[in-house]
Design a protein around this nucleic acid. Structure first.
Length: 780
DNA sequence: AGCAAGCTCATTTTT
DNA sequence: TGAGCTTGCT
């Protein structure tokens, strides 16, 4: 019973309460994972067979961590056979075994978002609809939302309100697209991410034998991050738990941040009504953050209505005040963060991995990357395009997909003529047309190419291709995923082709393929779950299933000593010594798309709450006066959330042009800036903008008066306008700007990284031009 | 057929 | 800004 030591009272209670429905309301940093893992270990220590425990998480990372911690507690490897995983991966595994019931091959493909959107696009075009109006992205999101609400194509078409909505947006035919899309996926033997939930639900609902099988199998069910479950997940859980009712859900309504994906807090409230005697345990002691950080977080979230009442408290030290920093531009914000990290490393002996930079949108990462790179601080970005989304990797994998499931038209289209083998666009278009006309798959057409009147040369090319795929298919009986992958790379000249490309990108692509092959090999060598026979051992099918459900975060080493950059969403469940929350500006955080209703705004606020509560020791909040948004510099107001911060816990500073912000004896300038013109851009900027304003008490921040940009007299540059190298620009030179026209440089200032020219334009008067961004042509 | 240049358009967040 | 797509050229 050693594992019970080190738990506080409610934690212990949650672990020991094994029978019957239980809801754990776990505040940020209250030891939720510890409770979940100890609970599972406790069940196992008391003789529950690991096959009978189902634990569902939102990320593979969380699942993996839980498994490891359980193994650690138990001191053996019994945990290997637990059903721990994401909703998607666990359901994929079950669906693989039950696919036949739904009319799917058990070798079904899982389409990622890109594949799915591509099918949507294909279908839109085939229905002769305009893809400018029916944008694949929009339509896909609509379909996705429908599936997550368990609305199938038929219900979609028959639902009055949904139809009204589509009428209003002038897209009445989405129902038809949805229907065609679902049929096409089925024909391709493919499920998209949402299908893994939707079809799992249908499996349990429509096939009582399947329902009984899994209901009785899973005697104990645990759900992590319950506040982020959507209706599909909710219904599935309910069905699975109905027999034993040993269901434990863990969540925090204050951290619900996925409503855009259909998640609803209603599930938390509904849970209490679904079962007769639900026990509720609250974990309210925070072990993560300083008092100051927690105080700020609590104050922020108190602005939301209708929270489950909780009192999150901590015994930790008071800690430092929260630093609120304003900069001129997003690039300055980047520089400020890199500077501050450097300073903290020196002053407080932190490692790189103690720092995390959080932002609202992935696009914001650029400024931080640049400044960190310039300072030589190693970093890693979570959430960009993942390894498996790179073109060469997707192409390579497409071969494997076709071998496993030749009905997969998306994969087939990718590789049928790559590397080039004389099966061009015309041939492919024809094949798809024939397939649609005869209601067969594209692969069927290729196999029976003779019947469709292709020219001799084309026919030969097709037949060779079909033979090659078939021979690889026959390998599946005796060979594992690695052997087949290696074989196909050689056979198709895929690898050789990349090897011969000596351009920088070519070399990188070749290396990526090598890395892919290595990772397949590695996967082959890791031991199986005992019960995994049903998934198909180390075959290609099992491999493919596994990688499509892998997230970007799963591919990166969380222990590497590097600064981490990620969106707030991606940071859920993580913690860091030092956290920077950047881009706290209206229309960015909160997002401009979420300020029109209270619900959306409250979700943004929860997101901010999640961001703040990632920090253990030190927290910086930053925002920029102006930032580059789709190409041009846009002014922004500070976020309304900043006004909700309790003033007494804040330390306000201004860090204009990337200077150090506080305290050091050299005051506000970096050595570099001092060498290049006194106080540099920072001091200059401070004169212009002043320090960040303290909280305005009365003025509501809604609809802030927009500072009117001075009207520009448009200048049409010559067609051959070419920006000059302005690194040696001097006062007195004459220049041309694309928008402002001709002018004379009157003054040069700023640092060498960030030179600023003051120009007297003939038509537009005096402007300050940041040479790093603007394009100027030197006239003389 | 294949490639390069130019054009348009989008930006929330992710399994 | 930059990705993806169409157009036009070879």
């Amino acid at each position: 019973m050693d594992y019970l030591k080190g738990l506080n009272e409610p934690q212990r209670e949650a672990v020991l309460h094994t029978e019957g429905p239980l809801m754990i309301v776990a505040g940020a940093g209250s030891g939720k994972t510890k409770v979940l893992t100890t609970r599972i270990a406790h069940l196992m220590a008391n003789g529950v067979d690991s096959f009978r425990i189902l634990a569902l998480t939102f990320t593979n990372k969380a699942a993996k961590e839980m498994k490891e911690r359980i193994e650690h507690i138990l001191g053996n490897s019994d945990a290997r056979n637990l059903y721990i995983g994401t909703f998607h991966s666990v359901f994929a595994r079950i669906l693989r075994a039950e696919a036949h019931r739904l009319g799917y091959p058990n070798s079904f493909t899982i389409y990622d978002t890109d594949d799915a959107k591509s099918v949507v696009k294909t279908v839109i075009n085939e229905l002769n609809l305009d893809d400018k109006h029916y944008k694949p992205n929009t339509v896909y999101n609509r379909i996705s939302a429908a599936k997550n609400a368990l609305v199938g194509p038929v219900e979609y078409k028959n639902d009055y309100y949904i139809q009204q909505e589509d009428m209003r947006s002038n897209r009445p035919l989405i129902a038809n697209i949805y229907d065609a899309y679902a049929k096409r996926c089925f024909k391709n033997g493919a499920m998209d991410f949402d299908d893994l939930l939707f079809l799992m639900y249908r499996l349990l609902k429509e096939f009582p034998e399947a329902l009984i099988k899994y209901q009785s199998k899973f005697r104990y069910i645990l759900i992590d991050e319950y506040q982020d479950t959507n209706p599909a997940q909710y219904e599935i859980i309910k069905l699975l738990a109905a027999q034993h009712e040993n269901i434990c859900v863990v969540g925090d309504d204050a951290q619900s941040i996925y409503s855009f994906r259909g998640a609803t807090i209603q599930n938390i409230l509904q849970f209490q009504k679904d079962y007769d005697d639900v026990s509720i345990i609250k974990l309210e002691q925070n072990y993560r953050s300083t008092q100051n950080i927690l105080k700020v977080a609590n104050d922020i979230i108190a602005n939301n209505k209708g929270q489950i009442p909780k009192n999150l408290w901590t015994e930790n030290a008071t800690g430092e005040k929260i630093k609120l920093v304003r900069t001129m531009t997003d690039n300055d914000e980047g520089k400020f963060v890199a500077d501050a990290i450097q300073e903290q490393k020196l002053r407080n002996h932190y490692n790189n991995k103690d720092f995390c930079v959080l932002y609202r949108t992935n696009a914001q990462s650029r400024a931080f990357e640049e400044s960190l790179r310039r300072m030589g601080i190693p970093y890693i970005i979570y959430g960009g395009i993942s390894f498996y989304q790179r073109k060469e990797i997707k192409d390579y994998i497409a071969y494997l997909r076709v071998i496993v499931n030749p009905k997969d038209e998306e994969a087939l289209k990718r590789i049928i003529n790559y590397p080039v083998r004389g099966i061009g666009k015309t041939t492919i278009d024809k094949a798809i047309l024939y397939a649609n006309e005869n209601n067969i798959t594209m692969w069927d057409v290729l196999e029976r190419a003779k019947e469709f009147g292709y020219k001799a040369g084309t026919l030969e090319a097709i037949e060779n291709f079909v033979l090659m795929i078939r021979s690889a298919q026959s390998m599946m009986v005796k060979h594992n995923a690695y052997e087949i992958a290696f074989h196909i790379g050689k056979q198709t000249n895929f690898v050789k082709e990349l090897f011969n490309d000596k351009s920088t990108e070519g070399v990188a692509r070749y290396e990526n393929i090598q890395e892919l092959l290595n990772s397949i090999k590695e996967w082959i060598e890791t031991p199986l779950n005992e019960e995994d026979g049903e998934v198909g051992d180390k075959g290609l099918g099992a491999y493919l299933q596994q990688i499509t459900l892998l997230t970007d975060a799963d591919q990166k080493d969380p222990n590497a000593d590097v600064v981490k950059l990620m969106t707030v969403h991606a940071a859920k469940g993580l913690e860091f010594q030092c956290v920077f929350v950047a881009g706290l500006e209206e229309t960015l955080f909160p997002s401009g798309l979420s300020i029109n209703s209270r619900e959306e705004l409250e979700e943004e606020r929860r997101l901010f709450y999640v961001a703040i509560t990632r920090a253990k020791n030190r927290l910086w909040l930053s925002y920029a006066n102006a930032r580059y948004r789709f190409g041009s510099l846009v002014q922004n107001e500070g976020s309304r959330f900043l006004e909700e911060l309790p003033e007494e816990f804040l330390d306000r500073t201004f860090a204009g042009g990337g200077a150090r912000n506080q305290g050091s004896s050299f005051n506000n300038t970096s050595a570099f800036d001092r060498m290049h013109g006194g106080f540099g851009a920072a001091a200059q900027a401070e004169k212009t903008y002043g320090p960040p304003p303290a909280r305005k008490k009365e003025t509501p921040s809604y609809l802030p008066p927009k500072p009117q940009a001075p009207k520009v007299v448009e200048h049409k540059p010559a067609a051959d306008f070419v920006a000059s190298d302005t690194s040696n620009l001097q006062a007195g030179q004459k220049v041309e700007h694309q928008k402002f026209g001709f002018g004379m440089v009157s003054k040069m200032e700023g640092s060498a990284h960030n030179p600023i020219a003051t120009v007297q334009f003939e038509l537009n008067g005096e402007k300050k031009i940041m040479l790093n961004y603007a394009k100027l042509r030197i006239v003389e």
